[in-house]
Every structure is written in C-alpha cells, then in structure tokens.
C-alpha cells in the first residue's frame, strides 16, 4: 500500500499507479468483450417477440396454472422411470468411476502411462452433458429408458471419478506406509489403508451425484431417453399447457425431495 508525498502532503492509496492502470485496463477489456458478445446476441434476436414477452408469459402461466390435476394419474409411471434412470445411472457411473479413480489418482496409479488414460476418460465424460450423451445413445440404441440410464451413467463417471480421485489423493500417507511395512500386497494396502480413509467421501459424492442425476433425468426424455421428459415433450408439442404445468409441479416436488434426502444422508455420513 503505497503512500505518496506530493507538496509535502502524504496521501494514502490502496494501490500504486501501475496496478490501478492494470485494473482499469482489465475492466475495460471485460466490458468491451461483454458488449461485443451482447451485440451478437441482440443481432440474432427478434425484438418484436421480446416486446410481448410479458404477455406471452402471462398467457403461458394462465394456461398452465391451475394445472390439470387429473393428469397426475398418468405421471406416476414416468416419475418412477425418472427415479430409476437416475438411480441405475448413478450405480453404473460409480461402478466405472471407482476403479478409474484409483487409476487416475497420483498416489495409487499402477503406472504413469495409465494415469493420463484414466484422466482422459474422466475429462471426456465430464465435458459432455448428459443430454448430449442421451442424444448419442438414442441415436445408437433407439429411444427408451436404457439410453437414459447409460447416458446418466456416462456423465456420472467423470463427475464422480474426479471427486473420487481427489479424495484418494488427499489421503494421509502414514497409514499407507504402516500397512506397506507389514508386508501387505498392493491390493491389501488399497483395501486397508486407502479405502477406509476415502469411503465416507465416496458415499457422500455418490448420494450428491444421485441428487443431481434426478434433476438431469427429468429432461433427457426431451430427446427420447425416457422418464418424465417424454411427457413434457409431448405436452409442449401438443401445446397442452395445463399438462405441462402439472409436469412442472411434479418435477419440482421430486427434485426437492431428492435434494432433501441427499442432504439428510450426507449429514448422517459426516
């Protein structure tokens, strides 16, 4: 924090001149970039549509609410499918992520060549959204729950795997050394010294991802991969807004419920 003396008067400034200039340049550059981007978006927008957006919203809301409660009877099955997709997908994701994480963690990888391969699996799975995985799998396997389960599973590998291997890398070395010093084999060191250390965080991550997966599996039906998204797609295409409203409400409830369960379980683990 520089103190400048001009005309015998000390003035205190938080930053010196160079860093003030640098900050201003940074702000200016950010503003320019944002304005440029905004212009591109504004150019691609039809503003007469935007002008009556409030009307559109009001119309949509008035048609969607109150929802058609009786439609709920047809939603139980899709909701059940949605939960199944999320749960089975999480199981697949964790089952693949578990060994991958041990291959990817710096302290447990069997060979330095295997590590980048495992990391590649994790990065690719993470970068591709579950909806894109669903697009791909629907093209491969045809529409249905199976495509959804695998899509959710594939996306979960990266998320779960990354958090798993970070947990493995954070384990303390002392128990590992101690178990190794008893003459234990590599797998025994993993199961006795590493696994007990990471198991609680593994469980927490799994439940956390399950909760996210419930949210994700509500939309993969929009591309045909099963679950309540299929009904939403049908309702929107047929402009049956009262049904869509019912679907929105059921999604809201089920996601809140899963979030509550996941928070409870994670608190119980810790």
């Amino acid at each position: 924090m520089p103190v400048r003396i001009s005309n015998g008067v000390k003035t205190w400034q938080r930053y010196d001149r160079a860093s003030v200039l640098k900050q201003w340049a940074g702000w200016l550059a950010t503003t320019v970039v944002v304005l440029f981007c905004w212009q591109l978006i504004a150019g691609a927008t039809r503003w007469e549509f935007v002008a009556d957006a409030p009307q559109q919203l009001a119309q949509f809301l008035s048609r969607a609410f109150p929802p058609r409660w009786s439609y709920m009877n047809q939603l139980w099955r899709p909701l059940w499918d949605t939960v199944n997709i999320a749960t089975l997908g999480t199981i697949i994701g964790v089952a693949v992520a578990f060994p991958t994480a041990f291959l990817a963690a710096r302290n447990t990888t069997p060979h330095p060549i295997i590590r980048p391969l495992a990391l590649l699996i994790i990065v690719v799975s993470r970068s591709v959204n579950s909806l894109i995985w669903a697009l791909l799998l629907v093209a491969l396997l045809g529409p249905g729950i199976l495509a959804g389960v695998i899509a959710i599973g594939l996306r979960s590998i990266g998320f779960v795997g990354k958090l798993f291997y970070e947990a493995i890398e954070e384990t303390s070395i002392e128990p590992v050394e101690a178990i190794r010093a008893t003459g234990a084999s590599g797998m025994q060191v993993l199961s006795y010294a590493i696994l007990p250390q990471v198991l609680p965080s593994f469980a927490g991550v799994t439940v956390f991802r399950w909760d996210i997966n419930i949210r994700e599996s509500t939309v993969i039906g929009l591309v045909g991969a099963g679950g309540i998204g299929l009904n939403l797609d049908a309702a929107i295409n047929a402009l049956q807004w009262s049904r869509a409203g019912m679907i929105f409400i059921s999604i809201f409830v089920i996601v809140l419920l899963s979030e509550w369960i996941s928070a409870r379980v994670r608190k119980a683990i810790i």
Binding site: A44, L57, F60, E259
Partner: peptide, 24 residues
C-alpha cells in the same frame, strides 16, 4: 430454490415461450 430445482433445459423452455427461438 426455483432456479436450482429446474434443469437448465426446462428453464429454457419457459424462456423460449417468452422470447421466441434464439440466443436471448
């Protein structure tokens, strides 16, 4: 809570209804 509960695509549906197709 409203923003966290709904997946981005569902929110997008509502905004498309409001603003029409497009990046806005």
């Amino acid at each position: 809570t409203l923003s966290r509960t709904f997946q981005e695509v569902i929110i997008a549906i509502v905004f498309v209804i409001m603003f029409g197709f497009g990046p806005l």
